[in-house]
Computed example of a mutant assay.
Amino acid sequence: MCLVHLRATLDNWDPELVHTFAAEWEVILVDLAGVGGFTGTTPNTIEGTAYNAFAFLDAIKLDCYDLLGLSIGGFIAQEMALFHAWQVRRLVLAGTAPLYTAGAIRDTAFRDAPTAEGLLTLFFEKSASSQAKGVDFLKRLDMRTAERDTSSTLAVRDAQLIAISAWGVRDETRLQRLASIQQSVLVANGDNDEMVPTENTYLLAEHLPNAKLSIYPDAGHGFLFQYPVEFGTEVNAFLGS
């Protein structure tokens, strides 16, 4: 199951990345309560959102699964691996951080209406090569024109920002909880993530007992959208190993 970033819906996943996953695995993309076209209220805690995800998985009667979490989705994935360790087989943490250090929420993320320019700023490096890959990504996002998901509301944004802020409260003792995640974990990021700084990825790799670290060059928070086939292939190999 794939858990997406701040304010995102099903249509924020890169089709090329999802197709790469789907070549080898059954893929579940989900909006949780209040997000996109789903009814309900978005929880304003990471823990609450994790239990919301469990309710969805219970409803579809899935009791063993792999998790991929991007950004805030990675926070949720960590909680799920801790709370329901017997159900989570393997874990992929992309552009995310451990409890106590959520990173920097840049002003662009606060805007009432997300824009293409904002996605390029938040997710891609300033280099010409990375920005060009970002433009390609935006074109792929626009490929599906029928039955697109509903955009997230400002209430979703605000609830998720509260959850992120609480997750990032400084307390280094919280890093110790990562030792309880015994699953194999792929920890990945771009080499210069300014949204959730790459140093957090190294922290995860250092404190998770069974972590594999993967850093992509000339890339930022959206490294997996800059390298969709490469990252998708790496994830497929990791899950199958």
Rank of each mutant, 00 (worst) to 15 (best):
R177P: 09
A104M: 13
I105Y: 05
E194K: 14
L62I: 05
L120S: 00
A113I: 14
A53I: 06
A23F: 02
P197R: 08
L178Q: 02
M1N: 11
S71Q: 07
G168C: 01
F225A: 01
A237F: 11
G37C: 08
D218W: 00
F124K: 03
N52I: 06
L161F: 00
L93G: 15
A188T: 01
V18G: 07
P114D: 01
T20E: 02
L29M: 06
K139W: 13
R111D: 03
S241Y: 06
L204A: 12
F223K: 03
T49M: 00
S241E: 11
F56D: 00
D58Y: 13
L6V: 08
L93I: 15
L208F: 11
H221C: 03
V169L: 02
A205M: 02
N52V: 05
L32W: 08
T96M: 01
R7K: 10
Q87W: 09
V27D: 00
D218N: 13
I181L: 09
V4I: 14
L93R: 14
A109T: 15
M80A: 03
K139F: 06
T96R: 13
T145K: 10
G220A: 11
V4N: 11
V92W: 14
A81W: 07
Y65E: 06
F225R: 01
H221V: 06
G69K: 03
G48S: 06
E79T: 11
A116D: 11
I60G: 01
F75Y: 09
T115K: 08
L32T: 04
F238T: 06
A104Q: 15
L29A: 08
T39F: 14
Y65L: 09
D142A: 10
A155G: 14
L175M: 12
F223P: 10
G168M: 04
D149H: 03
R177D: 02
G190P: 03
L178S: 08
R144S: 15
E26M: 05
L186Y: 04
D142P: 05
